[in-house]
Amino acid sequence: AEKTGIVNVSSSLNVREGASTSSKVIGSLSGNTKVTIVGEEGAFYKIEYKGSHSYVAKEYIKDIKDE
Rank of each mutant, 00 (worst) to 15 (best):
I61C: 03
S11R: 12
S30W: 10
E2V: 15
K65S: 13
S22C: 12
V9G: 11
G51R: 04
R16C: 08
G5P: 02
G42V: 02
K62N: 10
G5M: 06
I64F: 09
V35T: 00
V25R: 04
E59K: 11
Y49W: 11
V38W: 06
K62L: 11
N14H: 12
G18V: 07
Y45P: 02
K3T: 08
S54D: 02
S54R: 11
S11H: 14
I6W: 12
K50Q: 13
N32R: 08
V56F: 00
I64M: 08
G31S: 14
A57L: 15
E59M: 11
G5K: 04
T33N: 05
V25M: 05
G5R: 04
E48L: 15
I26H: 03
E41L: 08
S54T: 05
S22H: 11
S23L: 02
K3D: 03
V7G: 04
N14R: 11
S11G: 15
V9E: 06
K46C: 10
S20Y: 07
K50L: 12
A57D: 10
V9S: 12
K46N: 03
E48S: 08
K34M: 12
Y55T: 00
Y60D: 08
S11M: 10
E40P: 01
E40S: 07
N32L: 09
G39R: 02
V7F: 03
Y60K: 06
E48W: 14
G31A: 15
G39Y: 03
K62G: 11
S23R: 03
S20P: 02
E17S: 10
N14M: 13
K3C: 12
H53P: 06
A1E: 09
E17P: 02
I61N: 01
K58L: 03
S20M: 06
A19W: 04
N8P: 04
S10I: 13
G5E: 02
K34I: 14
T33K: 06
A57M: 11
D63H: 10
G39D: 06
A43V: 08
G27R: 01
E2F: 15
I37M: 02
K50W: 07
T21S: 13
L13Q: 04
G18P: 01
A43T: 08
T36A: 07
V15K: 01
S20T: 10
G5Q: 03
V38G: 01
A1K: 14
K3N: 05
D66A: 11
N32M: 10
K50P: 02
H53C: 08
E41Y: 09
A19H: 04
S54V: 14
K46F: 05
K58I: 06
V38Y: 06
T36I: 14
A19V: 05
S12V: 12
L13D: 02
D66V: 14
E48D: 09
I47V: 05
E41F: 08
E48K: 13
T4G: 05
V25Q: 04
K3M: 11
V25E: 03
N14K: 13
E48F: 11
S22F: 07
L13Y: 03
I6G: 03
V56S: 00
A43I: 09
G18D: 08
K3A: 06
I47L: 02
G18K: 13
S23Y: 05
L29P: 01
Y49E: 01
G27V: 02
L29Y: 02
S20D: 08
I47F: 02
V25N: 03
F44G: 00
K3S: 07
V15I: 07
G42Y: 04
L29H: 01
S28G: 06
R16M: 15
E59Q: 10
D66L: 13
G42C: 05
Y55K: 00
D66M: 14
V15M: 05
K65H: 11
Y49Q: 01
S30F: 10
G27W: 02
N8I: 13
S54G: 15
S12Y: 11
R16W: 15
S54I: 05
A43G: 12
N14A: 15
D63T: 14
N14V: 15
I37L: 04
I6E: 05
K46R: 09
E48H: 08
I61S: 01
S52R: 12
K24V: 06
S52N: 11
S10G: 12
G31I: 09
A57S: 10
I6C: 11
E59L: 08
G18Q: 12
T33A: 10
E67V: 14
E67A: 14
T33C: 09
K34E: 07
I61F: 05
I26R: 04
N14S: 14
G5S: 03
L29A: 01
A57R: 10
K65Y: 10
I26F: 02
T21I: 14
I47T: 01
S11F: 08
K46E: 08
V56K: 00
S52C: 09
I6Q: 05
I64D: 07
S10A: 13
G39M: 03
E17M: 09
N14G: 08
K58G: 02
E48P: 03
V15G: 01
K3I: 10
S23Q: 03
A19N: 04
A1P: 13
E2D: 10
S22T: 13
I64P: 06
V25C: 07
Y55G: 00
V38C: 08
Y55D: 00
Y60G: 12
S30T: 12
S12T: 12
K24I: 07
T4A: 07
S54Q: 07
I64N: 06
V15R: 01
V7S: 04
I61K: 00
Y60W: 09
G42M: 04
F44A: 02
Y45H: 03
K58A: 05
V7L: 05
V9L: 08
Y45C: 04
T36D: 04
K58C: 03
A43H: 09
T33M: 10
A19L: 04
L13V: 15
K62C: 11
S28N: 09
E67G: 13
V38T: 06
K65T: 14
E41I: 09
N32V: 05
G18R: 12
A1M: 14
I37A: 00
R16E: 01
S22K: 11
G18T: 12
H53S: 05
K34L: 13
K62I: 15
E41D: 09
S52T: 14
V35L: 05
D66S: 12
I47H: 01
H53M: 09
E48G: 03
K50C: 13
S12E: 10
E59W: 06
G31P: 15
V25Y: 04
I37G: 00
K65A: 11
S52K: 13
E41P: 00
S22L: 10
T21R: 12
D63W: 12
I37E: 00
E67I: 14
K24P: 10
V15Y: 03
E41N: 07
S54P: 04
G31W: 09
L13S: 04
V7T: 07
E41Q: 08
K50F: 11
S12P: 09
I64S: 07
K62Q: 11
E59R: 09
I61A: 01
S11K: 12
T4E: 07
V15E: 01
N8L: 09
E59G: 06
Y60F: 14
G39F: 03
F44T: 01
G27D: 03
L13A: 14
I6R: 09
V25H: 03
K50I: 06
I64R: 04
